[in-house]
């Protein structure tokens, strides 16, 4: 694994704090996501990992701290949030495919509305993405007619079609039936090995060990430990990570 300190940084969190009401979800979190590799965030539920991920494209607004994407401070006042989000793809736990649209329309919508492509151009590009995730022939199905695994793959295709710099995955396999998890993880793995910069909140420890270049362990709104997967999983430094791994492995 390349050293995060010397590789180029794609996303940098600086002293991020965020609370919902009286609950401090993120407490002064700083971290870096190196370009061209996968960073997995692990930790117990309620540890703030999803909130940190959602701060990355400002679905949640951090109260304090700064976030840089490719060197640009996205938390600065007056930043065009819509322009920023085009460069950051996101995949949700519950897919959130547009339920009134077909598979190809799901992928093509933002290409038309945001990238301003003509309908035929957008659909051509969408068709390529849909074929790439192995759903050729499903273009005109209603998204609700697909299995969860297929829906999640379409959601990945929808995000990738925008050609983002960074991909965020928020527990992308947690809502899937066990037998459908593999197919989605396989696509994420291919994407990681193709050099996509990814920030992945996951409970799939095998995936993290295999694919991640960097693993971040969060607990109680703080980053407890960061390192290469081998170090994190085989030689955890902190008692909290040790305890967490004992529970989940």
């Amino acid at each position: 694994m390349a050293d995060p300190a010397t590789t180029e940084i794609s996303v940098r969190f600086e002293n991020i704090s965020k609370s919902f009401g009286h609950v401090h979800v993120l407490k002064d979190v700083s971290a870096s996501v190196p370009r061209g590799m996968t960073t997995c965030i692990i930790g117990p539920s309620g540890s703030g990992k999803s909130t940190l991920l959602r701060c990355t494209n400002l679905l949640e607004q951090p109260e304090r701290g700064k976030i840089f994407i490719e060197g640009n401070d996205i938390t600065a006042p007056g930043v065009n949030i819509d322009k920023l989000r085009v460069r950051v793809g996101m995949v949700f736990q519950h897919f959130h495919l547009f339920s009134h649209l077909s598979v190809i329309e799901n992928v093509a919508l933002a290409l038309q509305k945001v990238r301003k492509l003509r309908k035929d151009e957008a659909e051509a590009r969408a068709a390529v993405q849909i074929a790439a995730i192995g759903l050729k022939g499903f273009e005109h199905r209603r998204s609700s007619d697909l299995s969860g695994g297929q829906q999640q793959r379409v959601a990945i295709a929808r995000a990738l079609a925008m050609d983002p710099d960074v991909m965020l995955f928020d527990e992308a396999t947690s809502a899937l039936d066990p037998e459908l998890v593999k197919g989605v993880l396989a696509i994420m793995r291919d994407l990681a090995f193709a050099g996509m910069t990814m920030l992945v909140v996951t409970h799939e420890m095998r995936f993290a060990r295999e694919v991640a270049g960097q693993v971040i362990f969060m607990d109680h709104g703080q980053i407890v430990e960061t390192g290469a997967p081998t170090q994190m999983f085989d030689a955890p430094q902190t008692p909290r990570l040790k305890y967490f791994l004992d529970q989940v492995l």
């Binding site: 494209n57 679905l59 819509d82 989000r85 950051v88 949700f92 519950h94 547009f98 339920s99 945001v114």
Partner: peptide
Amino acid sequence: ERGQVEAARTLGMTRWQAMLCV
């Protein structure tokens, strides 16, 4: 569902586009 709007917004669609298209 709120997620439908979030999905639209994360793709770079404006509030107005999300309203109109989703």
